[in-house]
Simulated assay, not measured.
Amino acid sequence: MRNRLPTYLLLWLLPALAIAQARTPLEVEAALDRQVVAPLLEAFERAHPEIDLRYNDRSTLDVDEKARHARPAPDVVISSAMPWQMARVNEGLAQPVDSDAARNWPEWAKWRNEVFGFTFEPIVTVYRLDLARHMMPPTTHADLHTLLESHQDLLKGRVTTYSPSGSGIGYTLFQQDARYSPRFWDLVAAMGAAGVILENNTRDMLEGLTDGTYWVGYNLLGSYAMHWARSHPDLIVQIPQDYALVMMRMAFVHRDAPHPVAARIFVDFLLSVEGQKTLAGSTPLFSVLPDVIGPYTAQRLRDQVGERLYPIPIDASLLAFVDPMRRKAFMDRWNREIKILTP
């Protein structure tokens, strides 16, 4: 005879089973390390138990591929590759979010209520304490250039940065550097002369810095670096003092989202006071909202760096970075200056 649940236990379980079956799935494709953003995801799941969040952490190039070609489409797309996000929205792949949070979101951090920058992450230099035993660590871009030229032999093969051909965010950051620094190409040439190793993501750079392969890393995502440094005290995170780039993770609801209501609820949460407080208090992703208080806020970053903080703007100027002719011209110059084989 088969075992059967007691009637009282079955009656107790039925409501829970009904709730589980009624949960709405939500597919999020994101270029954002789950370990770093975990507090925000957990806060969303507590606030919305009726939604079954499925969060996929991928590279910027993979996320862009999913946004363009995945069938069914993802519900929400998040990426640090800001020009690619803007290009997809410009192509009509996003739908607007009509909510108080979206309407009141700072104008400089959104475009047409369709795509929103919800983090405020500084771009940093990271070095090992080993470096400080041999030379004065760099606090500015000019310091790094001088260090590379004066200690070229000692730093040979011990410097790392993004590959602009293998990383969407890496390419974007170098384009911004070229905009703000008249000595950018001199720095690229100095990195090439020091045998710089190009990586496709910040995690690989941090792992190399941790195991001693690298002594200094340039243009790392500050959120990942700060999170990593908490458990690796031999690494020092430096926000450049001459100027500091800031990138924002951009999120949009896909035009063909299978679950658009849940998708809009998720994006709205990213923009909410609760979501931004979680970013400011529990993650190094930095909140955007000016009134939010915590160790990681845009205002606190401005207090540290002052007027030399340069956020990458969310506007139509981003579209120039995905222009094929501009990209080719930039990469031709990059390869000419750096004089190494790029991946």
Rank of each mutant, 00 (worst) to 15 (best):
1 M>N: 07
13 L>V: 12
14 L>T: 12
18 A>C: 10
18 A>W: 01
22 A>G: 09
26 L>K: 04
29 E>P: 04
30 A>K: 10
34 R>V: 15
35 Q>Y: 02
47 A>W: 01
51 I>C: 08
55 Y>C: 13
57 D>Q: 09
67 A>M: 07
72 P>L: 08
75 D>S: 05
79 S>W: 02
80 S>Q: 12
81 A>E: 09
84 W>R: 13
84 W>T: 09
87 A>L: 14
89 V>N: 03
89 V>F: 01
90 N>R: 13
95 Q>H: 08
96 P>A: 08
97 V>N: 05
99 S>R: 06
116 F>E: 08
118 F>I: 11
118 F>N: 03
119 T>C: 02
126 V>D: 05
132 A>K: 09
136 M>A: 15
139 T>G: 08
140 T>I: 11
144 L>N: 05
153 D>P: 10
164 P>K: 08
167 S>M: 11
174 F>T: 11
175 Q>R: 15
176 Q>H: 09
180 Y>Q: 11
186 D>I: 04
187 L>I: 09
189 A>P: 02
197 I>S: 09
199 E>C: 15
201 N>A: 12
206 L>D: 06
207 E>Q: 14
212 G>D: 01
214 Y>A: 03
216 V>A: 02
219 N>T: 10
224 Y>C: 11
229 A>S: 15
234 D>Y: 05
238 Q>Y: 00
239 I>K: 07
241 Q>W: 00
243 Y>A: 10
244 A>C: 03
250 M>R: 03
259 H>A: 10
266 F>E: 07
269 F>S: 03
276 Q>M: 03
277 K>C: 01
280 A>T: 02
281 G>S: 00
288 V>N: 02
294 G>I: 09
301 L>T: 01
301 L>A: 00
307 E>V: 10
310 Y>I: 12
313 P>F: 01
336 R>M: 10
340 I>Q: 03
342 T>S: 14
